[in-house]
Structures are given as C-alpha cells and as structure tokens.
Lab assay of single mutants.
Amino acid sequence: MKKYKITVYDEKTGEKHTIEIEMSEEELEELAKKLAEKHNVKVRIEKV
C-alpha cells in the first residue's frame, strides 16, 4: 500500500477538499471514479 493525496474539487460551489490516504492503487482508482460519478466533482491524485 502506498500513501496518496486526494484533492476533490466541486466546480459549482468552488469547494476544494484534500485528504491523505493509504491504500492500493486499484482501490484508489475505484474510489476516485465513484467520487467523480456520484458527486460530479473533479478528483486529482498525487503520490506522497
């Protein structure tokens, strides 16, 4: 498992949230996809 920083940005409201999380790359990609689809936000992932 690796550490990642996830930034979620909502273009409508301008809200931006960043968290650090430790998980596998596959789980992370699935999480990012679900966030983007369900909440209509942009998701950026960076390795820490």
Results as ranks from 00 to 15, higher is better:
residue 6 I to P: 00
residue 35 L to Y: 10
residue 43 V to T: 01
residue 10 D to W: 13
residue 31 L to A: 03
residue 42 K to M: 12
residue 19 I to N: 03
residue 24 S to N: 14
residue 27 E to L: 06
residue 10 D to H: 09
residue 34 K to P: 00
residue 40 N to G: 15
residue 34 K to C: 07
residue 20 E to R: 10
residue 24 S to I: 09
residue 43 V to D: 01
residue 8 V to M: 15
residue 10 D to T: 03
residue 18 T to P: 01
residue 42 K to D: 06
residue 25 E to S: 06
residue 30 E to T: 10
residue 3 K to G: 03
residue 14 G to R: 04
residue 12 K to L: 13
residue 46 E to Q: 02
residue 12 K to F: 10
residue 11 E to G: 06
residue 2 K to Y: 15
residue 7 T to V: 04
residue 15 E to A: 12
residue 22 E to F: 12
residue 34 K to E: 08
residue 5 K to N: 03
residue 12 K to Q: 10
residue 33 K to G: 04
residue 32 A to L: 12
residue 37 E to G: 10
residue 39 H to I: 07
residue 28 L to N: 01
residue 37 E to W: 03
residue 24 S to D: 09
residue 21 I to N: 02
residue 7 T to P: 00
residue 40 N to V: 02
residue 2 K to G: 15
residue 23 M to Y: 03
residue 3 K to T: 08
residue 41 V to H: 05
residue 26 E to V: 09
residue 38 K to L: 14
residue 38 K to D: 11
residue 32 A to K: 13
residue 2 K to V: 14
residue 27 E to Q: 10
residue 36 A to F: 12
residue 1 M to L: 10
residue 44 R to N: 12
residue 24 S to V: 07
residue 9 Y to I: 11
residue 27 E to D: 12
residue 40 N to A: 05
residue 5 K to L: 10
residue 47 K to I: 15
residue 12 K to A: 13
residue 44 R to M: 13
residue 45 I to R: 00
residue 8 V to P: 00
residue 39 H to K: 12
residue 9 Y to K: 03
residue 30 E to H: 09
residue 46 E to L: 02
residue 16 K to H: 11
residue 25 E to Y: 06
residue 46 E to S: 02
residue 15 E to S: 08
residue 6 I to Y: 01
residue 14 G to P: 00
residue 12 K to V: 12
residue 16 K to V: 15
residue 13 T to A: 03
residue 46 E to W: 02
residue 19 I to V: 07
residue 2 K to M: 15
residue 26 E to F: 07
residue 4 Y to P: 00
residue 29 E to K: 14
residue 43 V to K: 00
residue 17 H to D: 06
residue 27 E to H: 08
residue 47 K to E: 15
residue 3 K to L: 10
residue 16 K to C: 14
residue 23 M to G: 07
residue 2 K to H: 15
residue 37 E to I: 07
residue 8 V to W: 15
residue 25 E to L: 09
residue 31 L to S: 01
residue 29 E to L: 13
residue 4 Y to M: 01
residue 28 L to G: 02
residue 25 E to A: 06
residue 28 L to P: 00
residue 9 Y to L: 07
residue 14 G to Y: 04
residue 3 K to H: 11
residue 29 E to V: 12
residue 43 V to I: 11
residue 6 I to R: 00
residue 8 V to F: 14
residue 45 I to E: 00
residue 37 E to L: 11
residue 48 V to H: 03
residue 20 E to N: 11
residue 23 M to C: 15
residue 13 T to P: 01
residue 4 Y to I: 03
residue 25 E to R: 07
residue 47 K to H: 14
residue 6 I to S: 00
residue 10 D to I: 06
residue 30 E to A: 07
residue 10 D to E: 05
residue 23 M to I: 12
residue 44 R to C: 15
residue 11 E to M: 14
residue 38 K to V: 08
residue 45 I to N: 00
residue 43 V to F: 04
